[in-house]
């Protein structure tokens, strides 16, 4: 098969097509990725990635993409199916409005990871920044899952409308040892957040409350945290053997009483 040669060097290594992203503009890099996927390639390895944006953006396929380096903003935004494994960190908006697929990050993530995602899974081994999981949603059988190995910054799960976020807090920041930042789950009206720590209810934002874990919650955590541990070579028993706090919405209609027409009946 003919592999298109642009500035991005493309070669083959076993079952992988290897794309060298060194010094390549994102637009060209993504064009190469799209062409390869369109030609039926299903295993891509991108090397020397250094902040290129939009990798796997809007991609509809069941392909597997390995990224070596730092993935730039909006990794797999609007994606519909691909598995993206990052051996490095990801920048803002990884999984933004993703519909289906998986993102596995061996390093850290910055802000708005999983913003508005509707389906698929994101596993981040390290810490994540601000506004992560904002407005995550779910739709029928699509229930997105976001698992964070480290800690999360402020506004985690704000306006959350569905899906599940798990924060394990396996490592803590010296400067801010809390498992999640301020304004946790403000305006949440769907979904749930599980934090592997005790969390005072007074730290929650408007519309959120703490609820006891049920048997189903435990089973969910065993499955997802188990998968997380197997990916990142952790002992699942050790990780799961801890207190979890579950944060849920007080109501699916947080603004029901805000307007005069509702009160007039």
């Amino acid at each position: 098969m003919e592999i298109p040669l642009r500035k991005a060097k493309v070669s083959r290594e076993g079952e992988f097509v290897v794309v060298d992203a060194k010094g390549v503009h994102y637009r060209e890099l993504n064009e190469v990725i799209n062409e390869l996927v369109e030609k039926g390639e299903r295993k891509l390895r991108l090397i020397n990635v250094n902040g290129q944006r939009y990798i796997a953006d809007g991609l509809r396929c069941d392909c597997y993409i390995e990224i070596h380096g730092v993935a730039g903003d909006d990794l797999a935004a609007f994606a519909n199916g691909p598995t993206v494994v990052v051996f490095g960190d990801v920048q803002d908006g990884a999984g933004n409005t993703m519909n289906a697929g998986r993102i596995i990050v061996h390093g850290h993530g910055t802000d708005i990871i999983g913003h508005s995602m509707r389906g698929g899974k994101i596993f981040v081994r390290g810490h994540v920044g601000y506004r992560v999981g904002i407005h995550m949603k779910e739709y029928r059988e699509q229930v997105p899952v976001l698992v964070i190995g480290g800690t999360a910054g402020d506004f985690l799960g704000e306006y959350m409308a569905g899906g599940r976020i798990v924060v394990l807090g396996l490592e803590r920041l010296e400067t801010y040892p809390e498992i999640a930042g301020e304004w946790l789950a403000t305006g949440i009206h769907g979904g749930a957040i599980y934090l592997r720590d005790e969390v005072d209810e007074d730290r929650l934002g408007y519309g959120a409350k703490v609820e006891k874990l049920t048997h189903d919650d435990r089973r969910f955590l065993e499955a997802e945290v188990g998968e997380f541990c197997s990916i990142f070579s952790l002992n699942p028993e050790e990780v799961l053997n801890a207190e979890f706090t579950k944060v849920v919405p007080k109501s699916h209609r947080p603004f029901a009483d805000m307007y005069s027409d509702a009160k007039e009946g």
Binding site: E138, Y159, A161, G190, P254
Partner: peptide
């Protein structure tokens, strides 16, 4: 989901 408030936040959070 059916029956749930559909909330569009004031800003785009990204």
């Amino acid at each position: 989901p059916e029956g749930s408030d559909a909330i569009s936040p004031a800003p785009h959070h990204d």
